[in-house]
Amino acid sequence: MPLARYALLALLCLTPLGAMASEGGEETAQAPTGPVISYYALEPDIITNYLSDSKTLGYIRTTIELMAESEADKKLLEANDPLIRDAIIRLLGSKTGEQIKSLATREELRKECEAKANELLLKETGKKAIKELIFTKFLYQ
């Protein structure tokens, strides 16, 4: 008799958990309603030279992540990776040492890279696919 009581008690304790698990499964089956943010990393890191002063060259190494609002935009970024990399390398290489090293101008540089890449994407594909351009690593020497 005590064994039957324990089995009944165990059954009663597990019933609400089973009901909650089935409800949770129904919620996860629904599609998300908002935009799905995706990130695309420009691999490998971007490395280029810049004019440190009138006589010497410096170099910059940066890791860049591109934020896209959908998987389709992420695939668009992936397909146009060489175009985006070239634009960023040219832009970084045209800056002076003061512009590269300054924290104040780094944000301007990030926005400028984002705008240039989106401008080229618009010409090439008809869509601005970059929501945000993020420097995840920014090293210079």
Rank of each mutant, 00 (worst) to 15 (best):
residue 110 R to M: 09
residue 18 G to K: 00
residue 30 Q to V: 05
residue 76 L to P: 00
residue 51 L to E: 11
residue 35 P to Q: 13
residue 109 L to S: 06
residue 100 I to N: 08
residue 50 Y to I: 02
residue 56 T to G: 06
residue 65 E to M: 14
residue 71 E to Y: 15
residue 59 Y to H: 11
residue 1 M to D: 09
residue 123 K to A: 13
residue 109 L to P: 07
residue 19 A to P: 00
residue 51 L to W: 04
residue 12 L to E: 09
residue 42 L to P: 03
residue 124 E to P: 06
residue 103 L to N: 10
residue 105 T to N: 08
residue 14 L to D: 00
residue 106 R to V: 01
residue 136 T to L: 05
residue 4 A to Q: 09
residue 104 A to Q: 12
residue 128 K to I: 04
residue 76 L to W: 00
residue 25 G to R: 09
residue 96 T to N: 10
residue 99 Q to Y: 13
residue 141 Q to H: 07
residue 47 I to G: 00
residue 140 Y to V: 01
residue 94 S to T: 03
residue 51 L to V: 09
residue 67 M to Q: 15
residue 29 A to Q: 12
residue 14 L to W: 05
residue 1 M to V: 08
residue 101 K to D: 07
residue 56 T to Q: 14
residue 2 P to M: 11
residue 25 G to K: 05
residue 74 K to D: 02
residue 84 I to L: 01
residue 100 I to G: 07
residue 48 T to P: 04
residue 111 K to L: 15
residue 62 T to G: 05
residue 53 D to T: 09
residue 69 E to H: 11
residue 141 Q to V: 10
residue 19 A to K: 01
residue 63 T to L: 14
residue 122 L to M: 14
residue 108 E to W: 04
residue 34 G to R: 11
residue 29 A to C: 06
residue 72 A to F: 10
residue 89 I to L: 15
residue 8 L to V: 05
residue 52 S to E: 13
residue 136 T to E: 08
residue 72 A to D: 08
residue 97 G to D: 03
residue 101 K to W: 04
residue 126 G to A: 05
residue 45 D to R: 06
residue 16 P to Q: 06
residue 138 F to Q: 04
residue 72 A to Q: 09
residue 98 E to M: 14
residue 32 P to A: 10
residue 1 M to K: 07
residue 114 E to H: 08
residue 121 L to H: 08
residue 51 L to Q: 15
residue 109 L to T: 07
residue 54 S to L: 13
residue 31 A to E: 12
residue 68 A to R: 04
residue 36 V to F: 08
residue 107 E to A: 11
residue 60 I to P: 12
residue 104 A to S: 09
residue 59 Y to I: 03
residue 101 K to I: 01
residue 2 P to F: 15
residue 63 T to W: 03
residue 120 L to C: 07
residue 137 K to R: 15
residue 63 T to N: 11
residue 111 K to H: 13
residue 12 L to M: 14
residue 123 K to G: 00
residue 14 L to H: 02
residue 38 S to V: 06
residue 100 I to H: 08
residue 110 R to N: 11
residue 117 A to R: 03
residue 113 C to K: 01
residue 83 L to R: 02
residue 60 I to Y: 11
residue 111 K to I: 08
residue 116 K to E: 12
residue 95 K to C: 07
residue 71 E to K: 14
residue 85 R to W: 03
residue 132 E to C: 05
residue 12 L to C: 11
residue 73 D to T: 03
residue 132 E to H: 14
residue 137 K to V: 09
residue 118 N to M: 00
residue 125 T to I: 08
residue 51 L to N: 12
residue 62 T to P: 02
residue 71 E to D: 14
residue 33 T to E: 13
residue 92 L to Q: 07
residue 124 E to S: 15
residue 89 I to Y: 04
residue 74 K to E: 07
residue 50 Y to G: 02
residue 61 R to A: 12
